[in-house]
Every structure is written in C-alpha cells, then in structure tokens.
Design a protein around this nucleic acid. Structure first.
Length: 299
DNA sequence: AGTACTACCTGGAGGC
DNA sequence: TGCCTCCAGGTAGTAC
C-alpha cells in the first residue's frame, strides 16, 4: 500500500525540541536558498540577510515552526514542513553515523545521517561550523520571514486556530461544537478551528473515540464531542512521546526516525483487521483525504 | 457566508 | 527489466 508521511503537530514538536537543544544561541554566518519557490512573501536576499542573526528561541503553532531571532530585528523565520519537509542540524565536528538512540519513553530510534542533495532548499550555516538543512522533495513546504515576533501580522498564521495541545479537552470540545455541520474529519483537519491535526491523527482520534469520521459534527452530542476532544489530545500526546510518526521521510533534527508508526490503529491499515474487534477496516475518501475506519467499532 | 473542490509537487509502488 | 500510471496530502485559492 502506498503510504505517506505527514509532519503533523507531534512531528513538528519533535523537530522544535531538537532545534531548541541544538540551535539556540547559534549565530548564522550565511543563509543559502536552493529553491526560491519555497519562499513566501520574502526574497532570497531577505533570507540572506539572516547572516549575523542569533537564534534566541524556537516556538511552534500547529504545524508551523517559529524560529525567533535575537537582537534589534527580532525577526521570525517561519518554517512549514509541508508533506515531506525535514529540518536537520549537522555539527561541523560531528561525524553522524547510523546507529540508535534511546528516548525518554524507552523507545529506541534508528539514526541516519542528514542527506544533502538537490532537495535541500535552505542551508543556514552557523558561525563556528555546523548548519541547519531544510530538505523537502515534494516542495509543499514553505518558509516565511517576518519582521518581529508577532506572527498574527501574516495572514497565513493569523487565521490559525489555537494550538491543539494548548487546549484542555473541554476547550477543544467547545471549539468543535461551534464548527458547523461539516464532517467530523473535515473539522478536525480545519486549521482555523484547531491547529496541528492532520490526516493521521484525525483518523486515529476518530477510532479512539469510536466515532465515524464521515459523521456530521452537528450530530454529536456534548458527551461525544468531549470524547472526541479527549481522543484527539491523547493521540497527539502519544505521538509526541514517541517522537513522531515516520512512514518514509520524517526525521528529527538528528536524522532519527519517529516511533509512533507501530502504535497506529487505523491509518494506512485499510483492508486489514481492526485491532479492537477484527472487522476488516474500511477505506474511502472523506474530506478529500484517504480515510480508514472500523464499521463495527465507530458509530 | 459557509462549504466544497482543485492545483501545486515528486517519489514510490504496482501493473503490464 | 523498464516504462507508464496512479496515489499520497497541507494549504491557498477558486467556485458554488
């Protein structure tokens, strides 16, 4: 079966944590754009102007990484990993060799060296050696450079709803209640309702909550909405603890794969038996996305 | 106004 | 073996 890999909230959070460990305090010596098409509302020259800037902190809103620059400019380099984006860091004195690393959760990840090829669209060289690499074969990723730390100044970020894991289950359930009569899955994927949920975690949340993804959100009572909200937060939390889901491309800043793929209950399992009841899992297009659910478990 | 659909893009998988 | 076609999906823009 053809499967994708999508940087959703847990994957982007995994990258953010790695960048915070490896990148904060680094001063950029040079910024090189490989493919200008990934830039949005900024030029190659604008990005080159990052030379001399120091990375002060790394935040995240939904699937967007927010690299905050120190100093007078206080600019923000915004990175969206799109479908296949990777943001890795290579230390100059570091020979990255394939191996394993044990996560705090106990999961052992495999390590691979960052690949440098024609799909690397941005290189941020650091003073003293080392470099950030943005690599994105499908080029759905985007890079923006904002003046200041206020991300609401750009339309793309201004229309985002609150970050999913900043919410309590009750708060999230409340947002779902206001989301109209669209399919449950359509609402979960709508970044203006809540930011961070993509196709994988939407399907997993529906399965955990025992709710069909093609039901109208308006048909859910308050108890079901709360159940769905709790399920969404639970699958996101598990994804973060497992350092993300890797099918093919997703890696953290050190080139390590995430461990969540083996935890998935429905995503990419269409036609296989339900892990809860044994029923053959259904697969169809819902909200214009490949969607898998159990006819028996999900109502 | 709210909702639905399509273009963008490339690598991998499967068919013949 | 190799070529061809199809499929994956996040977001903005367009159409209804």
């Amino acid at each position: 079966m053809a499967v994708g890999q999508v940087p959703e909230l847990p994957e982007v959070e995994t990258v953010r944590r790695g960048l915070s460990e490896r990148g904060i305090g680094q001063v950029f010596a040079e910024a090189i754009v490989g493919h200008p098409g990934i830039l949005e509302d900024c030029s190659v020259q604008d990005v080159a102007g990052l030379a001399g800037e120091r990375l002060e902190r790394c935040d995240r809103h939904g699937k967007y990484l927010l690299l905050r620059m120190a100093g007078l400019s206080r600019r923000t380099l915004v990175v969206h990993l799109g479908m296949s984006g990777q943001l890795t860091f290579r230390r100059a004195d570091e020979q990255v060799v394939p191996g394993t690393v044990r996560m705090p959760s106990g999961y052992v990840k495999s390590l691979g060296p960052p690949v440098v090829d024609a799909h690397v669209h941005l290189i941020l060289r650091c003073v003293g050696g080392g470099e950030f690499l943005f690599r994105d074969p499908r080029r759905f990723g985007r890079i923006l450079l904002l003046e200041g730390w206020d991300t609401a100044c750009h339309a793309r970020l201004e229309r985002l709803g609150p970050d999913a894991i900043s919410l309590t289950a009750r708060q999230l359930a409340g947002l779902l209640a206001q989301a109209g009569r669209r399919d449950v899955k359509t609402v979960l994927l709508d970044q203006s309702v809540v930011a961070g949920i993509g196709n994988i975690y939407a399907d997993e949340a529906c399965f955990l909550a025992r709710i069909r993804p093609d039901r109208s959100m308006g048909s859910l009572d308050s108890k079901a909405r709360l159940s769905l909200a709790r399920a969404a937060l639970a699958v996101l939390d598990q994804g973060i603890r497992m350092a993300g889901t890797t099918f093919r491309d997703f890696v953290d800043v050190d080139g390590a794969h995430g461990g969540n793929a083996e935890k998935l209950q429905v995503y990419a399992r269409g036609g296989l038996p339900c892990l809860r009841c044994g029923e053959v899992l259904s697969k169809a297009v819902v909200a214009t996305r490949g969607t898998v659910w159990c006819e028996r478990c999900q109502r």
